[in-house]
Nucleic acid binder design. Structure first.
Length: 726
RNA sequence: GCCGACGUAGCUCAGCUGGUAGAGCAACGGUUUCGUAAACCGUAGGUCACGAGUUCGAAUCUCGUCGUCGGCUCCA
């Protein structure tokens, strides 16, 4: 209703920011409320608002009150709490900019100081409409213009629901609540930014100004929140990714197409090694597949019907023939001609030719003859486009055969169709199942330009993908095994908080967004729900966000500073195995269709490394560090360099990513540069160390640990890497 | 894709209301031989994102394109 009519977060907000405090002690209410991405929230759903959300929602009313004090003509739409604060959408000729914030905040403070009660009033529909018509809703007094958005919102309130207003001081708003008791309960707040948003998120609707702010019980919490944001800024993967030389995105290569520098590539190699070891031990087999495939593969998989807007447009291949190329390129240069007028002529030529050439004659030769039959004066006015259009318009006419049909190839957006083909390549018995195909496959998705965001949202990505083919009976055990793997990774990376978002389908969208298999949807969702319930795993259920081929689980993880990331995914697929006619021979000698689990515990390299950069603030553990060891000789005398180099060589012989700093900087300078690059272990080597066959160890973040025997240090480095010590 | 802001050397940034670019770090060349977060001197480096336009004159003003960022619709 009024203020919290919609509370949909942007994707970025979902992927990036979450406030940790609300979620501690297993309290998942914040996420429950925010996960309910419904168009309208029912009173029951609203009742689940947490304390902090009520406070923020109330802060939105205070914001509106303040804006009206300055600009009484302001028209308000919706003002819900969101994950880290609140906003209110306002329609106002004056463009509010951050310079106005001080003024608005001053008015808000007055309102909070006045400590007005949030008074709830239940009214009839007619009363509500009347108030709206005289502009009294989301207003301080009657106005000349009606409260247009509020009137629209009233229209959409189901007859069964009570309509209520909330009043604080002079301000009255259409609102279902709930609120805190008094404006004074909005302890500490701050306006953060202003953005534009369409009314109801529909671009056909007018654009509103969305004023964002955040609020907390007290100033301490507010300050903590901004300190967290500051910290997040310092850890921003785009900033650190550049500083630490992990990746770049180059305009000429293309937006959303990261290039991995050696340091980033080293991290990728480590992640792949980790995944390969883990998956091998869990009975996965590696497969490999190309980056492109023909249109028909994706028609079969369902990606083209259901997922097309996320795919790059196709590459069209045509049988190359010099005459065709010449024909087309000649006409492209000349004027246009609507070939339609000459259709009859073309058809007659074709008919004549079909007598000359026996069936099965090669297209090229036939086409040569065809082209030569076109009168010179006509050729000069034909364009490739017009000829193609003509041929396309003829559709089934045999003339169409003169132009080889376009052979379309798509960049793969998902690995599954390729893996299904691999499954189908060999006959399978029930004894083969579960069959697990794993691949760090590269996928390309056409994300809209506005979606791109550093490494977190890209157009080329390499996924820690695998497809598990299994029987329904095996589902529970295998699904749990997959979850075990997630938990193992979380532990390794020190991810303490996570949540699985279980996304189901919307029956109303069968055949559009979701494959039209109502029964299978029900079955697999039920099955998944039960397994989740039987496990210890935190999960919430979110309607209408499944994959097109089955229920989906998005795994959200919280970084060390408490920001939330959607990193991994886990999906149940009943649709594609059918579409690909995948079968296994069961005990009873009948052919059955397996189920498929898609899983990607480490998500994509791109997003996962983006997450890790923030999580570790670039201070990676030794096993993962791009540069594990840097040797810093004190001085450049030959014996010292020889000793240093022998250590370098020994480390490298054991696959340790080690470097040596032979620059002319003094030792402090060398240390400074190594620290800035967050090199994990620095081995400072001077004459004293050389004479004792020792090295002085300095660890990034720990400082100087003093001299130690050379062999001991090397053994410890190797052991730490082997164990993947934190 | 839409709305808004921004785009200066490899990096971080100066360059006021138009008078054809500047610093620090990095790089390169010297000197320095230094024990745990920056030794010193010098050299070189820019079609001021790209393309048009206004102007005697554009990094600066206008328009377009591309890109980045903040939002809006979607995913790993």
């Amino acid at each position: 209703m009024a203020c919290a009519e919609r509370s949909e977060m942007s994707y970025k907000e979902k992927a990036r920011i979450s406030f940790p405090k609300d979620l501690q002690n297993g309290n998942l209410k914040t996420t429950l409320w925010l996960a309910m991405a419904e168009d309208r929230k029912t009173p029951e759903m609203r009742a689940q608002m947490t304390e902090i959300e009520r406070l923020r929602h109330s802060a939105a009313h205070v914001l509106a009150t303040a804006i009206l004090k300055i600009w009484p003509e302001a028209q308000f739409a919706a003002g819900p709490p969101v994950e880290n604060g609140f906003y209110y959408d306002v329609d106002l000729p004056h463009r509010i900019s951050p310079e106005d914030f001080e003024k608005i905040e001053a008015e808000m403070k007055k309102e909070i100081k006045a400590n007005h009660t949030f008074e709830r009033m239940e009214v009839s529909r007619d009363e509500a409409l009347e108030m709206g018509k005289k502009g009294r809703l989301a207003a301080l007094s009657d106005r000349n213009d009606p409260s247009k958005f509020k009137l629209d919102i009233i229209e959409n309130i189901p007859a069964s629901e009570t309509i209520s207003f909330y009043r604080n001081g002079e301000f009255i708003d259409l609102c279902a609540g709930p609120h805190v008791m008094r404006t004074g309960n909005v302890g500490a707040f701050k306006l953060t930014h202003v953005a534009s948003a369409y009314y109801k998120g529909d671009e056909k609707n007018p654009q509103l100004q969305r004023i964002y702010g955040t609020a907390f019980k007290n100033k301490t919490q507010l300050d903590e929140y901004f300190a967290m944001l500051e910290e997040a800024k310092k850890r921003d993967h785009r900033k650190l990714g550049k500083e630490l030389e992990i990746y770049i995105i180059d305009d000429e290569v293309g937006p959303g197409l990261p290039l991995w520098l050696p340091r980033g590539a080293a991290m990728i190699e480590e992640l792949e090694k980790l995944a390969k070891e883990t998956e091998f031990a869990a009975g996965y087999q590696r497969v490999r597949s190309p980056h492109i495939a023909r249109e028909q593969l994706y028609l079969k998989s369902g990606h083209l019907p259901y997922y097309k807007e996320s795919m790059f447009p196709p590459m069209e291949l045509r049988e190359s023939h010099p005459i065709i190329e010449d024909f087309f390129s000649q006409f492209e240069k000349k004027g246009h001609l609507h070939l339609g007028e000459n259709e009859e002529l073309l058809i007659s030529i074709e008919e004549e030719l079909s007598d000359t050439f026996p069936k099965g004659a090669i297209i090229g030769a036939k086409l040569d003859a065809f082209l030569q039959k076109i009168p010179e004066e006509l050729r000069s006015r034909v364009t490739r486009a017009s000829l193609e259009k003509l041929v396309r318009d003829l559709e089934d006419h045999r003339l169409r055969k003169l132009i080889p049909p376009a052979d379309r190839y798509y960049l793969k957006a998902m690995n599954c169709p390729h893996h299904h083909k691999l499954f189908a390549a060999v006959p399978h018995s029930y004894r083969d199942l579960p069959l697990r195909f794993a691949e760090y496959g590269t996928c390309y998705r056409y994300e809209q330009s506005g979606e791109l965001f550093g490494l977190m949202r890209v157009r080329s990505m390499q996924m820690n993908d695998a497809h598990i083919y299994l029987t329904p009976e095996q589902f529970e055990a295998e699904f749990n095994a997959v979850n075990e793997m997630y938990l193992k990774y979380f532990k390794l990376f020190g991810i303490e908080k996570y949540l699985m978002r279980f996304s189901t389908h919307d029956p109303a969208k069968l055949g559009q967004k979701f494959v039209d298999e109502p029964e299978l949807w029900k079955q697999t969702e039920e099955m998944t729900r039960n397994v989740l319930k039987n496990s210890e795993i935190n999960f919430v259920e979110v309607p209408n966000e499944a994959a097109f081929y089955g229920p989906k689980i998005d795994v959200q993880a919280w970084s060390a500073i408490g920001r939330e990331f959607s990193i991994a995914t886990n999906q149940v697929d009943f649709a594609q195995p059918r579409r690909f006619e995948l079968v296994y021979k069961d005990k009873d000698n009948t052919e059955k269709t397996p189920l498929c689990i898609h899983r990607a515990p480490l998500g994509t390299h791109e997003r996962f490394i983006g997450f890790l950069i923030e999580h570790y603030a670039g201070n990676f553990p030794l096993w993962l560090a791009p540069e594990q060891v840097r040797i810093l000789p004190i001085g450049d005398e030959a014996p010292l360099l020889d000793y240093s180099t022998s250590i370098l060589n020994e480390l490298r012989a054991h696959q340790v990513r080690a470097e040596i700093d032979k620059s002319t900087d003094k030792i402090n300078g060398k240390i400074q540069r190594a620290e800035q690059m967050k090199v994990h272990t620095m081995l400072v080597i001077g004459n004293r160390d050389m004479e004792a066959n020792a090295v002085s160890v300095r660890i990034h973040g720990q400082g100087n640990l003093g001299a130690k025997p050379r062999d001991e240090v090397i053994a410890d480095i190797l052991q730490s890497i082997k164990e993947r010590r934190a």
